[in-house]
Write a protein that binds this DNA or RNA. Structure first.
Lengths: 109, 109
DNA sequence: TGCGAATATTAGATATAACGTATATTAGGT
DNA sequence: ACCTAATATACGTTATATCTAATATTCGCA
C-alpha cells in the first residue's frame, strides 16, 4: 500500500471539502437546498421560490448535479430534485444549527 | 418594529451564510484555517505550510480578515493570525466532524 | 404528427477570484 | 541613518462564476 504524506493528505481533504463548499457558497443555491432539505421539489417550484430565470435555476441545479449534491427523478415533463449527498446534507444541517445559535442582538440576557 | 417577509428573511440569512462559505470554499484557506484552529500562527508559518508565495498567503489572509474570519496580533515584525469568528469556527468544526465520519472505502463492516 | 409545457443547453457578456512579479511598508538591529 | 526581515499592497493575467437571451430537447396530448 501507499504511504500518504500527511501534508498531501491534508491537501486532498481540503480539496474535497472546498469543492463541496463551493457548491454551497451561493445565495440562490443555499435557498434551493434549504427547500430541498425538506424534500423533493420541481424545477418550477425552485424558480418561483428564488425568483430567478428558469435558465439560471436550471444551471444552478446543473452545478449541484455535477457536484453530486443532488439527484433527479422524472415524472412526465416534471423533474423532481432531491439532496443526494450525505456530506452536503450534514454540512447544511450544521449550517442551519449554527445559524440558529446566533444571537440576533438581544438574545443574551 | 418591522415585519420581515419570510422569503426576504431566508434570502438575508442565505446571503450571510454564502458569504462565510465563500471564505471557506478554497483549498489553501481551508488548510490555513485548519492550522489556525489549533491556535495562532505567523504568516511565515502559513507560507511554509501551504507552499504558496508569500504574497498569495497574505492575500488569502486579507480575504479572511475582510470577511471577519480572522484577526491579527503583531509582535515586532511578526504578525500572528487567529480565528476570530464563532460562526466560522463552528462551521469549520462541523466540517472536520463530517470529514471524519466518512467511510474511506472499508469502514462499514 | 403537430403543439404546448417543463426543463436543459449554448453562447456571450460581465464580474469576481487567484496567482505571480514587483514594489511599498514597518520594526529592529548596527 | 541604513539595512534586513516580515508582511502588505498594486498591478496584470488567466480562470471561473453567474446571468440573460436564444435555442434545443422531451414528454404527453389532440
Amino acid at each position: 500500500m501507499k504511504h500518504t504524506d500527511p501534508i498531501d493528505d491534508l491537501r486532498a481533504n481540503a480539496d474535497r471539502m472546498a469543492a463541496i463548499l463551493r457548491l454551497l457558497a451561493n445565495r440562490e443555491r443555499l435557498i434551493m437546498l434549504c427547500r430541498l432539505s425538506a424534500g423533493e421539489a420541481s424545477v418550477n417550484e425552485l424558480v418561483e421560490l428564488t425568483g430567478l430565470a428558469q435558465s439560471a435555476v436550471s444551471q444552478h441545479l446543473g452545478v449541484l448535479r455535477d457536484g453530486g449534491a443532488v439527484a433527479v427523478r422524472a415524472d412526465a415533463q416534471t423533474r423532481y430534485y432531491r439532496i443526494a449527498d450525505d456530506m452536503v446534507r450534514s454540512i447544511f444541517d450544521a449550517l442551519c444549527e449554527a445559524c440558529g445559535e446566533q444571537s440576533p442582538a438581544g438574545t443574551t440576557p
